[in-house]
Measured scan of single mutants.
Amino acid sequence: EADPRLIESLSQMLSMGFSDEGGWLTRLLQTKNYDIGAALDTIQYSKHPPPL
């Protein structure tokens, strides 16, 4: 049985245009305790590393 928090967070992320191919988004949301903001921060950080 999927956690209702996961279903809600995942559906919101999917509606933003993200995909869960391979389950990466599910794993990220689980790691971030279903916090969409924290997940988005992680995605943003990985796409744009800080300048040295």
Rank of each mutant, 00 (worst) to 15 (best):
W24N: 13
G17L: 00
K32M: 10
Y34N: 08
S9D: 03
D3F: 03
K47P: 14
H48M: 15
M16S: 03
P50W: 07
P49W: 12
D41S: 12
K47Y: 10
L52W: 11
N33I: 00
P50L: 10
A2N: 10
G37I: 05
E1A: 09
L25H: 04
A2E: 14
P49I: 14
S11D: 08
M16P: 00
W24R: 14
T31G: 10
I43Y: 03
W24A: 10
L52V: 15
Q30E: 14
Y45D: 15
H48G: 13
I7K: 11
H48W: 12
L28S: 04
S19Q: 08
F18E: 03
A39L: 02
I36F: 02
L14D: 08
P4H: 07
R5M: 11
A2P: 09
T26L: 01
F18A: 04
A39S: 11
W24F: 11
L10F: 02
G17I: 00
M13S: 01
I7M: 12
Y45M: 14
S46D: 13
I43D: 03
D3I: 02
N33Q: 09
Y34C: 13
P50F: 07
A39K: 05
L25A: 03
L40T: 07
I36Q: 05
R5V: 04
W24T: 12
Y45G: 15
L52D: 11
Q44G: 14
R27C: 07
Q44S: 13
W24K: 15
D35F: 03
Q30S: 13
D3G: 03
E1V: 04
L10D: 01
D41P: 03
D41H: 12
R27V: 04
L40D: 04
D20L: 00
G37S: 15
I7V: 11
K32N: 14
Y45A: 15
P50K: 14
L28I: 08
T31Q: 14
S9W: 03
L14S: 10
P49V: 11
M13G: 04
D3K: 01
N33H: 12
M13Y: 03
F18N: 04
D20R: 00
S11L: 05
D20G: 01
L28H: 05
W24I: 12
Q30F: 05
A38Y: 01
L28Y: 04
T26P: 02
K47S: 12
E21M: 02
T42P: 01
T31H: 10
L28Q: 02
E1Y: 05
L40V: 10
S9M: 05
G17K: 02
R27Y: 06
L10T: 02
F18Q: 02
E8M: 09
E21V: 05
N33G: 10
L14F: 11
S19L: 07
L14Q: 09
A39T: 12
P4R: 09
M13V: 03
G17N: 08
S19F: 08
G23C: 04
L40H: 04
Q12E: 14
M16C: 02
A39P: 01
S46V: 10
G37W: 07
P51N: 15
I7P: 09
Y45K: 14
M16T: 02
R5W: 01
T42Q: 11
S46W: 10
I7L: 10
L6K: 09
Y34H: 06
M13H: 00
G17H: 00
E8P: 09
A39I: 05
D35N: 15
A2L: 10
T31K: 11
L52F: 08
E21A: 07
G23I: 00
A2Y: 04
I43W: 02
T26Q: 05
P49L: 14
I43G: 03
A2S: 15
S11I: 06
L6H: 05
K32A: 08
L40M: 13
D3S: 05
L52P: 02
S19D: 14
I36W: 05
E1M: 13
S19H: 13
L28M: 07
D41C: 08
Y45R: 15
G17C: 00
R5E: 08
S19C: 12
K47T: 10
A38S: 09
L28F: 06
E21I: 00
I43V: 10
Y34S: 06
E1T: 06
L6D: 03
Q30D: 02
L25K: 03
D3V: 03
S11M: 08
R5T: 06
E21T: 11
Q12M: 10
D3Y: 01
D35H: 06
S11P: 01
D20F: 02
L29R: 01
I7D: 06
T42V: 14
E1L: 04
Q30L: 11
L6M: 06
I43H: 05
P51E: 13
W24Q: 11
M13P: 01
S19W: 01
I7E: 11
E21N: 09
M13R: 00
Q44A: 10
T26K: 03
P49D: 15
E8D: 13
D35M: 01
T26D: 00
L10W: 00
F18P: 01
D3C: 02
K32V: 12
L25D: 03
S15K: 15
L10E: 03
S46C: 11
P50C: 11
G23N: 03
D20M: 01
E8I: 09
M13N: 04
L6Y: 10
S9Y: 03
R5C: 01
S9E: 01
G17S: 01
I43C: 06
L29E: 05
T31V: 13
A38M: 10
S11T: 12
A38N: 04
I36M: 08
S46Q: 14
E21W: 00
A39Y: 00
L28E: 05
S46L: 13
D20A: 00
G17W: 00
Y45W: 12
G22K: 08
M13E: 01
Q12K: 15
L28C: 03
A38Q: 08
R5G: 07
A39R: 00
S9L: 07
Q44H: 13
G22D: 13
Q44V: 08
L40S: 01
T31Y: 08
I36E: 05
L40W: 06
D35Q: 01
S19P: 02
R5N: 08
G23E: 09
I36P: 06
P4A: 08
F18W: 09
L40I: 13
D20W: 00
M16H: 08
S15P: 03
E1W: 02
S15V: 06
P51W: 08
K32E: 10
M16Y: 10
Y34D: 02
P49Y: 15
Y45F: 13
L14C: 07
A38H: 08
L6G: 04
G37K: 15
R27A: 11
Q12I: 14
Q44D: 12
G23F: 00
T31W: 06
L28T: 08
S15N: 15
S46A: 11
T26W: 00
S9A: 12
P51D: 15
E1S: 05
I36Y: 05
K32Y: 13
P4Y: 06
L40K: 08
R5A: 08
M16R: 11
S9T: 11
A2W: 07
G22H: 04
P4I: 09
R27S: 12
S11K: 15
T42L: 06
E21S: 09
Q44N: 08
N33R: 07
L10P: 00
Q30C: 09
I43Q: 02
P50G: 13
S19K: 11
L25I: 06
Y34R: 03
Y45S: 15
S19G: 07
P49E: 14
G23Q: 09
I7T: 15
M16L: 10
S19E: 14
